[in-house]
Design a protein around this nucleic acid. Structure first.
Lengths: 215, 215
DNA sequence: CAAACTCAATCAATCGTTTGATTAATTTTG
DNA sequence: CAAAATTAATCAAACGATTGATTGAGTTTG
């Protein structure tokens, strides 16, 4: 049946995503992945051509859902620049914490000096979001919602960096926060709203204050 | 000669640090490392026992320099909490951008679910800095330098996360900033001061403003 | 000379991939 | 309809290549 085939491929991709994110591309053997997924080793090549093909397929599957999310917020003329940024933060915190282990994959791949093609593709995808936020920040400066001398590029680094730090280094951030951040209940009910509130207060304080240059 | 021996070991460690940070632990073969370092493959095992021993030796070498840096800032009674935090930021930005590729190593290792012993050791080392900053923040709240309702834990995530984001994802941050951040001149003369100024303004705005809870 | 060092050659183990056979379901044919 | 042919899916086994590690013979050094 066609449905079963798709389900099986999807199951392999689910397992592979987890194993790759735990062990890295080189650390995860095809035997481990196929074993974990409960399928014969040869099926990986049968379905995805190669180990790298499997790796790429994981990304292909996720890309679509990444593209469209922030798309229309920037063009909404009815809300202020601050509200747009606020919406972006909400979306981003929600989305990223769901795609937990995929985020780890993306981030590790970006730190590698291998597989340039994939690195470039990921970079391109992430830049869509970066540009979207940059646009909102610039617009906010122009219409004086935000202070004129903000450092927009580094604000972007803070937005993405803060979230990445929490998610990608769970050992450290769990110690800092005093909870296991891999506990889904804590994540959903406490951490997510807390990060949202914090990010908004942090950025509001910075963006909407006059940072005079006379030190 | 004893000097030559140490120099050679250090040279191997330098090369290995670079190769590991580019290719990951599993992606970097002992042949690649020894070839890059211009030494016989067997030397790696002769000096460091094993591939993992070599990997650990890279960390051992760096640990000492990491420990002592922030140590005494927190205990200085003559400066304000804000100045302490300010000093921490300076130290941190300076140090971390120098140890560029070692940071990538640390960060990738923290995202892995392998080599628990090393992960725990790294976590422990990083926590020294975390606790130091936490202490400063708490003290600042107590003596009313900082607002009473700040989110100290997430401030820490912002400090480390912002810097990590810039350094660990050079492809993306180079695009954002419009310069190749691996260009040492740009890094030293432009980016470093810029990050310092930005971080201080960002944190000052947040920490020294009343974040009322009514919305 | 003895200890420390260096090397090419080699080891077993594991890697990603391919193979050829087998099964089961579908389509074509007489 | 029933037999034959075709197809996709699955498997155990094996492939060559590469891995980290070791060997034992040679060289250098103090």
């Amino acid at each position: 049946m066609d449905k079963d085939k798709i389900d099986k491929k999807d199951h392999i991709l689910d397992v592979a995503e987890k194993v790759f994110s735990d062990l890295g591309f080189d650390g995860a053997s095809t035997r481990t992945i196929s074993g974990e997924a409960g399928v014969n080793m040869a099926m990986l090549n049968y379905y995805f051509g190669s180990k790298e093909g499997l790796f790429l397929a994981i990304f292909e599957r996720k890309i679509a859902s990444f593209q469209t999310l922030l798309q229309n917020i920037g063009n909404d003329e009815t809300i202020t620049s601050w509200d747009k940024l606020s919406k972006c933060i909400d979306n981003y915190v929600d989305r990223i914490i769901v795609n937990n282990c995929f985020q780890k994959l993306i981030n590790r791949e970006l730190t590698m000096s291998k597989r340039w093609e994939l690195t470039d593709k990921i970079t391109q995808i992430l830049m869509v979001n970066v540009i979207e936020i940059k646009k909102i920040l610039d617009e906010g400066v122009k219409n004086k919602t935000f202070a004129k001398n903000i450092d927009a590029e580094l604000v972007i680094a803070t937005i993405f960096g803060t979230k990445n730090y929490i998610i990608n280094t769970p050992h450290v951030s769990s110690l800092i926060l005093g909870h296991d951040i891999r506990d889904e209940k804590y994540l959903e009910e406490e951490l997510k709203p807390r990060v949202k509130i914090y990010m908004k207060r942090l950025l509001q304080a910075y963006l909407m204050k006059d940072n005079d240059n006379s030190k």
